[in-house]
Each structure stands twice: as C-alpha cells, then as structure tokens.
Write a protein that binds this DNA or RNA. Structure first.
Lengths: 265, 265
DNA sequence: GGTAGTTGTTCAGTGGATTGAACACGCGCG
DNA sequence: CGCGCGTGTTCAATCCACTGAACAACTACC
C-alpha cells in the first residue's frame, strides 16, 4: 500500500506566509482530505508536510480544539465542524435554493439528474444536485471535484474565461487527465471544443468521464461580478438519449440559467 | 433567525492555545459562518474577535491563500475549499451511502423524508437527507444544526449519554430554546422525556420545532467506539400521521439503524 | 532479552510572527 | 475646505511560538 506520490511539501519555496501556522494548518486539512483512508497519524503528517513533529503536534492540538479535526487514538481525521462551515457557505448561495425549486417544476428536467457547479482553481466543484431519477445513482456528490476537461460543466465554464487564461492553464504540451477512451487528449482538442461551445452556447460531454453516460451543460450569466461563474448540467444515459430530448433539456437549462442570473426570477 | 449572542471573543480566558494563530483563524471562520450577511470586513473581525487589526490582516491573508476564505473588495466570506473539506468528511462515512440505499428500498420510508444526524457539542448536525416526498420541502439542509431539546434526533441522542453528562449540559435552571408553543421549556420536562425514550427505544417530537410537523427518531447503536453516535429520523405532517404509520416507520428505522450499526448488513 | 524500528512527548533557547502606534486613504458634514 | 470617523496598510521592537535534540514508551523481529 505504498503511495507513490512524492511528498508534497507545505513550504513551497518562496511561500513565506504572513501567518505560517495558518498556512500549515490548512495544509494539514488538505492532507487529511486527500488521504485515501481519511486518517493520518502525527508522524505521517509531519513527514508528508515536512513539518517538525513537535510543531505538528501543536498544530493538531489547536485544530482539535477548534473541532476542525478529530483525534481517535493516534489517528487524526477531518472534523464535523467542516461540514458545518461548508453548509454555511452553501446556505449563502441563494442560487442553490432556486435551483431546487426550478428543477422540481421543469417538465423535462424534473425527471433527470441535474447539477450546479462552480469553477474552483483548475477544477469544478459540485454545489448541489437534484435527482429526479432515483433509479440510476451516479457518482459525484456535493463537494466533489472534477478536472475541467473531463466534464461538460468544466468545459462550459472554461469557455467563459479569457483566452489568455485558458492558454495559461492549458499550454499546448499539457497532459490532460484521461478517464475513458473518449476523454480529450490534447490542449488543441480542448480549445477547439471551447470555440464550438462559445458559438452554440452549451457544452456536450460524450462518455468522456464515464462510458455510457452523456452530459449537457450551460453557463449561468454572472450578474455583476459577485462571485465566480456557475454552470448547470444534466446527466443522462447514452442509451436513452435522443436529439429531441437534448434540445428540450438545453432549453430548460437555459431558462434556469437565466433566472439564476437575474435575481428574483 | 438572528442570533442574539453577544460578541464572542476569541481569547476566552485561559485558552492559551499551543498555536494561537490557528485558534484565531478558526475563530475567524466561525465568525464568518455566523455572520447574518455571510461577510465581514477586516475591522469587523478585528473588533468582534478582539484581535489587533494588523494581526487580523495577516490571518486573513493566510486564510485567503489557503482558499478557506474569499475576499470581495473589502468583504471577506467563507471559501469554497470548505465545501470540499466538508464533502471529504462526509464521503468517509459509509453510513451515509448505506443510508441512501436503504431508504430507497424500504416500503414505508421510501416515500418519506428521512435524515441521519450526529451529535455535535450541544447541537445535532444533519449529515444526509433522503427525500421520497418531493412535495413538502421542509427546512434543514445537510450541515444544519439544531438544539438537542428541539428535535426528535436530538432527544434520542441525548438519551444515549450518561446521566451526569446530561446533568452538566442541562442544569435544572437552564433556559431551553423555544420555537413553538409546544417546545419543551424546562430541564425537568426534557429529562422526563429522556427516561421515556430510553424505555421505548425511540423519540417523538410533536410540533416542538415546527407547527404541523411531527418527527420520529431512533439511535444507531455505536459499533465499537469508532466515532460519535448517529441518529435517524423521519419527518411527517401531523395532519397525515396515524399510529399504524408511526409503528411502521419506527420498525423500518430500527432495521436501518441495526444495519448501519453492524457493518456489512 | 536485546536491538532497531517505530511512536508521541518534553523543554530551553532563539529567530520570526505579532504588535500598536503611526500612516495613508475615502467619506460625510458643517 | 478642515475636521472627525471610518477604512486598511506599514514598520521596527519585542516577546512568544517554533524548533530540534533528547526523551520515554511500544512494537517487531531475530
């Protein structure tokens, strides 16, 4: 069970944070979130993050006191407080509330699996999920992340960015993550799709992340500059997917996007 | 829903954390989570937490770099990273996955609103929600908190604790939070209910948090000591609530609780 | 038992984070 | 305009959090 990732170090190089303890504490949380088993010992953390054991011990004590982590014997894991804080973040987004209401009433979407996502660094993060179709329980929960190039929402949000930002994130020789034989391989392919998405106003993902599954996505117009851009997507099984259905879905998605973009729909 | 607590100070008294910066950073997150508007300025935080402005500035810089908070002009709010971390916590609880599966298949529960919650200090926190009944969209999202005395799950989890712990949390002269005319008022009432719950094995909440709504809850037996105790609840409208139905619900809830308590059901 | 590998904890010395006063800026008011 | 009150930012001096080596406690293996 040896993990071949090289040890990610907290120091970076020229980081020199104005409050190193905080930066390191955040690194601890990240490490715990990434740990396959979800728990690590003091020594694990000290080694992986390159922080002296004594300092690590102090950090963990403080984090535990704040209930951001929990200790169980010698193992540390993320704490419940994080669920609370995450929920507090989501509860502030009234887009999420309206998202649910709309999905329930929409003629086509109400029977599908719909998601709302946000761009977050070089990934997207799912903020909410409506499930009108209890049958197929697909992956991706709230809070999950996905590479931009592998999802319809990712591509549609990417298309919202300026070209030079896209260029910076995806230089020509970049290696894209691959999950199925149909995943995009090169930056050129991705950029071609971005151009197409900008013309047609929506993105399609055709079995690029999961075989047998297709996805449609549209952007939510950013009203003002209040926060990063949101995207909406529907997921469907390729087997039961027709062009007419797709047209209906895109239409309703755009309606939803419009009402989210303009407060009080 | 305004909270009238007076300004909480981060220092406490004898706190003297082993990593003060971390403790203060956590206090900043709490303050942002509790802020009615969801955002505060540097000065707000500095004042409310009793931290010098220059130090607060450093903390905020570090928190922002870790993406735990976001700055928007002069206002700071919680960051998306928290959703990610909260989701990472939840994804580790396999109880949540099984919870969904069971609810979908259960004859009675599959049509109801079912929740799984955990005790968290002097509150409960909801970890997941199954909605078989898209009609009535009730309050309480994942991550929301509720006082112990105001919910069926709260009472059932309280009943799991030792008497001296209960006594410590609810001294005789304590003032319980009140949300409806039927909310419990005194510690004595609460303790009487706890005794009853221990005998019958489930808790009932009868319009104590919301008029017109009743709730049933059962505890999940803690297998080993691996984590704090969980509770399950069903919510129903008082109007459409019969004794036979209640009996069925309690029966299925107990089945679910049993299978969650015993790995690989 | 002995040795070598863990683990996490302790403690005095020191270097960098924290501090508060002083600063610069923007706004509303008489 | 000058003034008062509100921001957030700068910077040198101090003090305390961080460090690293030495410690104790366990496990594993021969």
């Amino acid at each position: 069970m040896v993990d071949s990732r090289t040890t990610r170090s907290a120091e970076g190089l020229g980081s020199s944070s104005p409050a190193p303890a905080v930066t390191r504490a955040a690194a601890v949380l990240d490490a715990l979130a990434d740990a396959p088993a979800g728990r690590l010992t003091l020594s694990d953390l000290s080694r992986e993050l390159g922080i002296p054991k004594s300092s690590t011990s102090n950090l963990l004590l403080a984090l535990e006191e704040a209930r951001l982590i929990t200790r169980e014997g010698a193992d540390f894991s993320l704490g419940r407080k994080l669920v609370e804080l995450g929920a507090a973040y989501l509860s502030r987004l009234d887009e999420v509330q309206e998202f649910y209401k709309f999905c329930e009433q929409a003629p086509t979407l109400s029977g599908e699996t719909v998601r709302i996502a946000m761009i977050d660094g070089d990934h997207i993060i799912y903020l909410a999920r409506y499930e009108g179709h209890p049958a197929v329980r697909l992956t991706s929960n709230i809070g999950d992340k996905m590479p931009l190039s592998l999802s319809a929402v990712g591509k549609v949000l990417l298309a919202q960015l300026h070209d030079h930002d896209i260029e910076a994130m995806f230089p020509d020789d970049v290696e894209l993550p691959v999950m199925t034989p149909k995943s995009l391989r090169t930056a050129a392919e991705l950029k071609a799709q971005v151009a197409a998405i900008r013309k047609q106003g929506y993105a399609l993902e055709d079995e690029e992340s999961t075989l047998g599954v297709v996805c449609l996505a549209v952007p939510v117009p950013t009203h003002g500059a209040h926060g990063p851009s949101l995207g909406l997507s529907v997921t469907a099984l390729k087997a039961t997917f027709s062009d007419e259905q797709a047209a209906l879905m895109v239409k309703e998605l755009k309606e939803l996007a419009h009402s989210l973009g303009n407060p009080m729909g």
